[in-house]
Amino acid sequence: MASTTTPLIQVKNLHLYFGAFHALKDVSVDFRAGELIGLVGDNGAGKTTLIRVLCGIHTPSSGEVWFDGRKVEKFHPKLAIDEGIETIQQSVGLCDNLSIARNFYLGREPVKRILGIPILDFALMREKSTKVIREFGLRDNVSADDEVERLSGGERQSVKIGRAVEFKNRVVIMDEPTNHLSVREREHVNELAVSLKEQGLLVIYITHDIFQVHKLADRIVIMENGEKIEDASTHTMSAEALEEVIRQGGRKVTKKEPV
C-alpha cells in the first residue's frame, strides 16, 4: 500500500567524497511517510554518512535528494529541521556546557518580548524540558537547569530522543538510538519508534542489530562500503537471510545462490 504513494524522501545516485575518500557510492533509495526503515550495516558502511546528508550536515558531491516532491538545492541542518526532519545523532547534538533546557531548544529558542526586546522564555524552556526529562526517566535530582556534562551516557541519549519526539514533525532519524541504554530504556525507545511510525511519520532507524530492528521495521536497507546492497521488506526476507547478506558483504553472487 505504501509503495503506491510518492516517496517523502528520494535519494538518486548520491555520491559523496571526503577528499579522496569515496564515502557514498551511487546510493539511490526511497523513503515513504508511515514507514519504519531499518538502516543496517557494519561500521564504516556509510549509514551515518547517508543520514548526515538527509539532515543537512553534509552536502553531496553529486546526485540528488528530493524531499516531498521538491529537489533539495541547499543542505544545512537548519533547512532540514525547518522541513520537519528531526535527527538523533550519535556523537553530536548536545553542548556539554549548556543546561538541559538550553540544549533542548538550541536553534529554536522561544522568546518573549520585554520592551520590544526578544528575551528567552526561560519559564517555557524549563517547563517543557522538565516534563520530557521526567518522562524519559532521568534521575530525580537532575533538573532542567543542570549542565548536560553532569548526565550519564543513557541520560544524554534520553534527552536527545525526548527532544526529537517532542518536536516530531515529519521525519525522525535515529542513529544507534539504543546505545548506552538499559534494557528497559531500549524497550521504551523501540516502542516510541513504532508509535511515531503509526502516527504517520517516516522513521529511519540505524543500528548494527539486524534482529532487533527486524522486529520493528517495515523495510530493511543494508549498506556496505558506501553502497546500498540490499533493500527488502521485512515480510519477504527473514532477519537470518538479511544477516547473511551483511556477513557476505554484498557479494551478490553468493547471496543469490540458493543454499
Partner: peptide, 20 residues
C-alpha cells in the same frame, strides 16, 4: 547568546541543531 555559547561548547553539535 545561547547560540554563541553553544558554538563554543561544541560547534558540531550546534551546527547539527541548525545553528549557523
Amino acid at each position: 547568546g545561547n547560540r554563541l555559547l553553544a558554538v563554543g561548547g561544541s560547534a558540531a553539535s550546534a551546527h547539527s541543531r541548525g545553528v549557523r
